[in-house]
Write a protein that binds this DNA or RNA. Structure first.
Ligand code: MN
Ligand code: MN
Ligand code: ZN
Ligand code: ZN
Lengths: 155, 155
DNA sequence: ATATTATTGAAAGTGATTTTCAATAATAAG
DNA sequence: CTTATTATTGAAAATCACTTTCAATAATAT
C-alpha cells in the first residue's frame, strides 16, 4: 500500500532532523500510509495496512509513532465518537488544507469540508482575541465538528 | 451534597413522565448532583459524591443513568481529552446557557464561555445551511472547543 | 394479590491504549 | 574499526474507563 509518488525527500524529513529524532523504517512507513489515504485511519487500521508488507512492525510501535507524530505536530488526532482515535496528516503536498469535519451519527461517515473556512477564520480570530482579553486565555488550537445525518442516511 | 434549593418539582420531572421512564432515587440523586455543581463531572466523580450519602447506589447505575440522560437530552457528554467522559446538565434554572469550552492543555482547567455566541450562532447558521446545500448533510448539533493555556499556565 | 415490566448492582468481561523490559539498531566516542 | 551510549522496537502483560450479564428487587398493570 505505501506507494511513493514523489521523487525528492518527503517534507517531514527535515522536521525529524531538526527535532533530533531518527527517521526509522516504521516511522517512514506510517507517514507514507497517512500520506496516501483520504481516510481517517485508526491505529489498528494503520497497523493492518502495513502489516501485510512489513509483518515485523508491531502495533505498539504504531501507537508510539502516532503519539510522536502528534507531539511533533505532523499529525492530528481526532475523536469522532467511535471508540478509537483517528489520525490524519496535518499537512501534505496536495489538497490537505485546514478543514473541519462533518460526522454522520448514523453511519459514521466523516466528510472533510473547507467551505466557509474563511468567514470562520475571521470569526475565530475575533473570538480568540476576545477570549484572550477577557479570560487571559491563550488559544493555540480549536476543534469544530458538525454532527448530523449524511446524504444517504436521511431516509 | 445533593442540596435542594427549589420548592416545586424539578424541571426534569415532566420529561420523565412524558418519556415513560421511572424517576427513581438514583436518577434523582444524579440529577441533583449535576444541578448543584459548576464543574464538569465524570461518572466516577459523580459516583463518589453520591456514594457518601447513598452507599448503595452503584457505579454501573451511574453510567447507565448518564447514558439515559444523554439520550433524553437532559445532559451533555463531553470529551475534554483526559480519558474520562464528562457530563453537564443541558439546561437549568439558572445561568446554564448554551456555551462552549476553553480547555487548558497544561492544567486541564475547563472554562465555560458564552461570549461571541451570538455572532457565532449566525456563522453556524450560515455554515449549516451551506453544508446542507452542498453535501446534503443535515446538521443536528455541533462541537466547538478552544485549546490553549489558561491564565495561570502561561508562565 | 398476582402477573408483568423496569430498574438496579455485583461481578465478570471488553477493548483500546499503555507499560514493562529485554533485544536490537543507530549514533557517538576513542 | 571497536566500544560505549542512547534511541527505538515489539511481545507480553497491565491498565482502566466503560459494558455486559444476570439474578434480585422495585414499580406498575391486571
Ligand atoms: Mn479530515
Ligand atoms: Mn460547560
Ligand atoms: Zn450516514
Ligand atoms: Zn491551566
Amino acid at each position: 500500500m505505501p506507494r511513493c509518488r514523489r521523487m525528492g525527500p518527503p517534507w517531514w524529513e527535515p522536521r525529524f532532523r531538526e527535532a533530533g529524532f531518527r527517521l526509522t523504517m516504521p516511522r517512514q512507513v506510517i507517514l507514507e500510509v497517512l500520506s496516501n489515504t483520504e481516510e481517517h485511519l485508526s491505529a489498528e487500521e494503520i497497523y493492518l495496512l502495513i502489516h501485510k508488507v512489513y509483518p515485523n512492525i508491531g502495533l505498539t510501535t504504531v501507537y508510539r509513532t502516532l503519539d510522536l507524530l502528534v507531539d511533533m505536530g505532523l499529525v492530528f488526532k481526532f475523536d469522532f465518537g467511535d471508540k478509537r482515535a483517528r489520525y490524519e496528516l496535518s499537512q501534505g503536498p496536495a489538497s490537505k488544507k485546514h478543514h473541519h469535519h462533518l460526522i454522520c451519527t448514523k453511519c459514521g461517515r466523516i466528510i472533510d469540508y473547507t467551505d466557509f473556512i474563511d468567514e470562520e477564520r475571521e470569526l475565530l480570530q475575533r473570538t480568540e482575541a476576545g477570549l484572550s482579553e477577557k479570560y487571559n486565555f491563550k488559544v493555540t488550537s480549536h476543534l469544530i465538528q458538525f454532527y448530523g445525518l449524511c446524504d444517504e442516511c436521511q431516509e
